[in-house]
Design a protein around this nucleic acid. Structure first.
Length: 128
DNA sequence: GTTCTAACA
DNA sequence: TGTTAGCA
């Protein structure tokens, strides 16, 4: 079932399509790339070409943003995801990749909501 | 018309 | 983040 992943990794969408699919601005999409959250390829004309995987990540980022996470918190989650890939310990300790991510996620979200002081995971209270 | 980089509000 | 400028 690797054929499927291969296709999901093919960069075939221009930023305009990604904008419509994710409802994110071009500015945001390019910014998340700068933060190493996504890695679109470039075509002959230096245009960014995104894959279905990139789009999935973008949609995930949008969810995290809605939960009040800032870039620091989101990057944490993806950095952790990378760390896990290089260090199999978790996979063998009966926790799936998804479970570990869920745990870290809850940790960051609760840290954002329980402290009265500003913390690195919180994007300063509501702006109203 | 669409996307890109860079920079300023 | 939005937006704008000047290119390709």
């Amino acid at each position: 079932m690797r054929e499927k992943e291969l296709r999901r990794s093919m960069s075939v969408f221009p930023i305009g399509t990604v904008m419509k699919l994710t409802d994110l601005s071009a500015r945001q999409i390019r910014y998340y790339e700068e933060q190493d959250l996504i890695h679109p390829e470039r075509n002959e004309g230096n245009r960014r070409m995104y894959s279905l995987n990139d789009i999935d990540i973008l949609l995930e980022i949008k969810d995290y943003l809605n939960d009040g996470l800032n870039m620091a918190g989101i990057k944490r989650i993806y950095e952790m995801k990378e760390y896990e890939k290089q260090n199999p310990p978790y996979a063998q300790k009966n926790l799936t990749d998804h479970d570990v991510r869920r745990i870290l996620y809850d940790e960051i979200v609760s840290a954002s909501g329980m402290s009265g002081k500003p913390n690195p995971f919180q994007s300063n209270g509501p702006k109203m």
